Amino acid sequence: MPQSIASRLTDYLGACPPFDWAAHNCTHFAAGWLQQVEGAAPNLPAVAGPVPAMRAIWRLGTDLADATTRVLGRQPLPAAQARVGDLVQVPAPQGGQALGICAGRTAALITPAGVAHVDMAAAVQCWAVQA
């Protein structure tokens, strides 16, 4: 029997390393999930900190949401339509925006302390993930 998306997400979150600009930032977190679920992930530029990350985003779009839309090749949906496993845009703990994963009533995001959860009410929009 195939593993449910919720079970796959629990396993993925349990194995995630903490936030690191170069090795595991929010885009790596989202891309790793896409690799797990869809079998392919976008090729992401390497960044060494917040300024290079913003430059990479600006090269791809006008902001994180626009860059995500362009890289994924799919249009964002209202956050209220997010299903478990969908990518979501949420406020980052250190300010700005971050990519997370809808975990039901919460959105999981990566932080220096590991995975954290914020209420899905904070999510701005989502991108459907094909499970």
Rank of each mutant, 00 (worst) to 15 (best):
T111H: 07
A15M: 11
L64H: 12
A67W: 04
G85I: 10
G114Y: 11
V37Y: 01
G14M: 01
G73D: 01
R105D: 15
A31Q: 10
D63R: 04
A121N: 14
S4D: 14
G85A: 13
D86M: 00
G61L: 14
D11R: 15
W58T: 14
T68Y: 02
A40D: 13
A80M: 02
I110S: 07
A128W: 02
I101A: 07
V47T: 13
T62V: 11
G73F: 02
A79L: 01
M120Y: 07
F19Y: 13
P93I: 03
A113R: 14
Q89T: 13
P78R: 08
P52Q: 04
N43S: 14
G32Y: 01
P52T: 02
Q3P: 11
W58L: 15
G61A: 12
W21M: 03
G104M: 04
I57R: 03
G95H: 08
N43Q: 14
G32S: 02
P18L: 00
R8V: 06
H28K: 10
V47W: 02
H24A: 15
L64D: 05
V129E: 03
V47N: 09
Q3W: 10
A103P: 00
I5K: 09
L109K: 06
R59F: 10
G39M: 02
R70I: 10
L77R: 09
Q75M: 12
V51G: 07
G61C: 14
T106I: 09
V71D: 02
G61E: 13
F19W: 10
F19K: 07
Q36V: 14
G114S: 08
G85N: 11
A15W: 09
Q75W: 11
R105C: 12
L13N: 05
I5T: 10
C102R: 00
A67P: 00
H117G: 03
P91C: 00
Q81H: 13
V88H: 06
P17F: 00
W21P: 01
L44Q: 08
P50R: 04
R74C: 08
A53V: 10
V118I: 11
L87V: 07
L34M: 11
R55S: 15
A123M: 01
M1R: 11
D63S: 07
V124S: 11
A82T: 07
T10Q: 09
L77K: 05
L34P: 15
L87S: 03
R55Q: 15
P112T: 15
N25W: 08
D86Y: 05
I110D: 10
I101R: 08
Q97V: 09
A103Q: 01
